[in-house]
Amino acid sequence: MDLLVERADVWAADIQDRPGGLAEVLDTLREAGADLQFIIARRRPEKPATGVVYVTPLQNDREIRAAAQVGFNVTQSLHSVRVMGPDRPGIAAELTQKLAVGEINLRGFSASVIGKQFVAYIAVDSLGDANKAMEILSKV
């Protein structure tokens, strides 16, 4: 199967848990020209009135400067691998099974299908695990 497997730097920022909190930081990135491929936002129950947003990619100095202005930093504790390829039934099960056999513990897994293609973001705990996951998935 022809899969595109690559590392993806994930950027994170705290956001205010209120209407428009997410829109404000995303608008700043849009104004800087960011063409985001992946966004996850959620509340932080351990920190009332606060949420967190994760995005990828930020690709140039202008985007990174704008991101820094609204509190984004590249995450040091979350390492991500992006996998893209032709969709078919069971592809997520196959990918996660290969990683399990390779003893890769997943921190997170998100996937979506658009048309006939799927994209998955696989979060792991270390750069070593990300590199190993890429090696495993490159052979699928």
Rank of each mutant, 00 (worst) to 15 (best):
residue 21 G to T: 09
residue 84 M to I: 10
residue 51 G to M: 10
residue 49 A to F: 07
residue 21 G to A: 09
residue 9 D to H: 04
residue 98 K to Y: 10
residue 80 S to A: 15
residue 13 A to F: 12
residue 79 H to N: 10
residue 11 W to P: 09
residue 88 R to V: 00
residue 81 V to N: 00
residue 93 A to P: 09
residue 32 A to D: 04
residue 61 D to T: 14
residue 57 P to E: 05
residue 92 A to K: 01
residue 90 G to N: 08
residue 98 K to P: 05
residue 22 L to F: 00
residue 72 F to I: 06
residue 89 P to T: 11
residue 29 L to W: 07
residue 86 P to M: 14
residue 83 V to M: 01
residue 42 R to M: 11
residue 72 F to C: 00
residue 20 G to K: 13
residue 43 R to S: 14
residue 45 P to G: 01
residue 66 A to I: 05
residue 95 L to M: 15
residue 21 G to S: 03
residue 21 G to P: 00
residue 48 P to W: 03
residue 42 R to E: 14
residue 74 V to L: 07
residue 76 Q to R: 13
residue 58 L to F: 05
residue 90 G to T: 06
residue 68 A to G: 12
residue 67 A to K: 13
residue 28 T to M: 08
residue 75 T to H: 03
residue 48 P to N: 07
residue 6 E to F: 07
residue 23 A to L: 10
residue 63 E to C: 11
residue 32 A to H: 01
residue 32 A to C: 03
residue 40 I to C: 04
residue 28 T to Q: 12
residue 45 P to R: 04
residue 49 A to M: 04
residue 7 R to E: 14
residue 32 A to G: 02
residue 53 V to A: 01
residue 81 V to I: 03
residue 70 V to K: 06
residue 62 R to D: 15
residue 52 V to P: 09
residue 81 V to R: 08
residue 34 A to Q: 02
residue 43 R to H: 08
residue 91 I to C: 04
residue 19 P to A: 12
residue 40 I to L: 14
residue 48 P to Q: 00
residue 53 V to W: 01
residue 91 I to R: 04
residue 98 K to G: 03
residue 57 P to V: 07
residue 79 H to S: 03
residue 89 P to E: 02
residue 19 P to E: 02
residue 73 N to H: 13
residue 35 D to W: 07
residue 62 R to I: 15
residue 92 A to Q: 02
residue 14 D to H: 14
residue 88 R to I: 07
residue 45 P to T: 06
residue 42 R to T: 11
residue 47 K to L: 12
residue 77 S to P: 01
residue 27 D to R: 15
residue 52 V to H: 02
residue 35 D to Q: 14
residue 99 L to P: 02
residue 70 V to D: 06
residue 31 E to S: 07
residue 42 R to Y: 09
residue 26 L to M: 09
residue 90 G to D: 04
residue 62 R to S: 15
residue 90 G to I: 09
residue 50 T to F: 07
residue 36 L to Y: 07
residue 28 T to H: 06
residue 96 T to R: 11
residue 69 Q to C: 05
residue 55 V to G: 01
residue 13 A to E: 12
residue 56 T to C: 05
residue 47 K to V: 14
residue 98 K to L: 14
residue 82 R to P: 03
residue 94 E to Y: 05
residue 25 V to G: 11
residue 18 R to E: 14
residue 67 A to Q: 13
residue 95 L to D: 07
residue 71 G to P: 02
residue 12 A to P: 01
residue 55 V to Q: 10
residue 35 D to T: 13
residue 12 A to Y: 12
residue 87 D to E: 02
residue 39 I to T: 09
residue 16 Q to G: 12
residue 15 I to W: 03
residue 28 T to P: 01
residue 52 V to N: 02
residue 20 G to H: 10
residue 80 S to Q: 12
residue 41 A to Q: 05
residue 31 E to A: 08
residue 10 V to T: 07
residue 19 P to I: 06
residue 80 S to D: 10
residue 73 N to T: 15
residue 73 N to V: 15
residue 78 L to Y: 04
residue 88 R to Q: 02
residue 94 E to W: 08
residue 23 A to P: 00
residue 84 M to E: 15
residue 77 S to V: 01
residue 92 A to Y: 14
residue 55 V to N: 08
residue 34 A to V: 00
residue 19 P to Y: 09
residue 30 R to Q: 09
